[in-house]
Every structure is written in C-alpha cells, then in structure tokens.
C-alpha cells in the first residue's frame, strides 16, 4: 500500500524553506564579503616592519608620530612661507647662523 504524505500546511512549509535558503545565502555572502574586505585591507596595509618610526620608549612627543623622518612635509605648502615684515612688528624668533 502506498501512502502519500499530504502537507496540511503547504504555505508554512514553503515559507520555512525560503527562510532557510535566505539564511544560508546570507551566511555565504557574509563570509565572502568579510573575506574580500580582509583581503582588500591586507593588500592596502603598508609594510611597516622596515619603517623608520621613532621610538616611543621615554618620550611621548614622538609616540604618535609615524612615518619616515625625511618626508615630514605634512601641513606645509610648497609655496613660500616667507613674507615681508612690517616695520614695527615685534620679532618672535630668530634664524641665527650656527
């Protein structure tokens, strides 16, 4: 005798199958996306193992500063920073020969 199982709730079963498929797809896409993100970030991360970062052993003034000392041009324009001084302007610094 052959019996055929009849689902009393076909709509509910279909919804559960779709939900399961969506969950699996979300997990797969999440893992893939995370992997891609990690890969991209890794590729973009410079190799700092051979850099010339200043030591921060006993002076906090350099602890947060990184990068090669020879390229400290940040914050400076290549245009000349010199100008003419007013006659009565008080002197604030000196560049004396040394």
């Amino acid at each position: 005798m052959v019996t055929t199982a009849i689902d009393p709730h076909p709509e509910r079963t279909r919804w559960l199958r779709r939900s399961a498929a969506a969950a699996i797809a979300t997990v797969v896409l999440g893992i893939t996306g995370t992997g891609l993100a990690v890969g991209i970030l890794t590729a973009r991360q410079p190799d700092t193992s051979g850099g010339t970062q200043a030591s921060s052993s006993d002076d906090s003034s350099t602890s947060s500063d990184s990068g090669s000392s020879s390229s400290d041009d940040s914050g400076s324009s290549s245009s000349s920073g010199l100008g003419s001084a007013q006659q009565d302007a008080p002197v604030q610094g000196g560049s004396n020969g040394s």
Binding site: G81, L82, G83, S84, A85, Q86, A89, P90, V91, Q92, G93, G94, S95, N96, G97
Partner: peptide
C-alpha cells in the same frame, strides 16, 4: 616675525614666516 642674522645678537633682516 623672524629676524635672520649671521650670528646671534647681530643686526639682521626681518621676514615673516
């Protein structure tokens, strides 16, 4: 305002920086 001089204490020229 910066004074540029050959040696400290000497008269120099003033520029802005």
């Amino acid at each position: 305002v910066i004074r540029v001089a050959e040696r400290e204490g000497e008269q120099g020229v003033a520029v802005t920086l």
